[in-house]
């Protein structure tokens, strides 16, 4: 595992040195500032509005970060032939994939925590209370971000980045739909649609922006189970990505 940790550290350094990360982070922070500047009727509504849409902004940020950080990693490594000396000698394919994933996941988590901090500062600036569950809610979005990251890795092994973006975004949208909504896309085949929907991820379990905005009490066990689900689904997507990668010739 030492090789994986070293390689993830290498990936982390590389991503921090790229402008993509800072560009996306800036866009998310600007969007949060924009949300906070929308006037509201009263103070309580404004607080809820900022929390609700702020967390939504962070969630979209997780998608943008996953795409921006990971969609080009493998294609670029292949194109620049950086991949060959790595895979040929010190790393096995699973170590390469896990190292790249872990590095990107750490960068993404750090960036999302920064956006969470930004949201807290905005709430403080407006003299609004900071809910205790804001940080756990961001943690769930980080887990969702990792799931999206693993999806981006999966697609990156057999598609180009311009195709990876719409495919991942489509899965992101579908994963937010309830079974009833999904069946509504093709009502003529409800059984098939229900089955497909059950296999597809239920990313809506990571969204607790509404309960937080409404001040609901969320039991800690919920966080644990949602994190477990998210990590297992990410592991599944990564294993599929690895199966595709292992089957590939590296010309």
């Amino acid at each position: 595992m030492k090789a994986v940790f070293t390689f993830s550290l290498m990936t982390l350094r590389m991503l921090f040195r790229r402008r993509t990360l800072w560009g996306i982070l800036l866009v998310i922070l600007l969007a949060l500032a924009g949300i906070a500047s929308v006037p509201s009727f009263d103070v309580s509504n404004q607080g809820r509005f900022i929390l609700d849409f702020g967390l939504f902004g962070i969630e979209v940020g997780a998608l943008l970060l996953a795409l921006g950080l990971a969609a080009t990693l493998f294609p670029r490594d292949r194109e620049t032939r950086t991949l060959m000396p790595l895979i040929a000698v010190p790393l096995a394919r699973w170590q390469y994939l896990l190292g790249r994933f872990m590095g990107a996941a750490l960068v993404q988590a750090a960036a999302l925590l920064v956006t969470c901090l930004g949201l807290m500062l905005i709430l403080l600036f407006h003299r609004l209370p900071i809910p205790g569950d804001l940080l756990p809610a961001t943690l769930l979005i980080i887990i969702e971000g990792w799931f999206l990251l693993s999806t981006v890795f999966f697609f990156s092994f057999f598609t180009s980045p311009p195709l990876n973006w719409p495919l991942t975004t489509m899965l992101f949208i579908v994963s937010q739909m309830s079974v009833a909504e999904f069946v509504g896309i093709m009502p003529s085949a409800p059984g098939l649609m229900r089955t497909i929907r059950m296999i597809l991820p239920h990313a809506d379990v990571f969204h607790i922006k509404d309960p937080i905005a409404h001040g609901f009490e969320i039991e800690p066990v919920y966080f644990l189970i949602a994190i477990f689900y998210g990590l297992c689904y990410s592991a599944f997507m990564l294993s599929l990505a690895l199966a595709v990668f292992r089957g590939r010739d590296l010309k």
Binding site: V221, I225, L231, A235, A243
Partner: peptide, 27 residues
């Protein structure tokens, strides 16, 4: 919903392990 998430998590984890070993053996 907790039971559902737990069950699905377990299934996906088992699948991940299966796919990892199957693809590794073939390689």
């Amino acid at each position: 919903i907790w039971k559902k998430l737990f069950r699905d998590g377990g299934i996906f984890l088992a699948l991940a392990v299966a796919v990892f070993f199957i693809s590794g053996r073939r390689r």
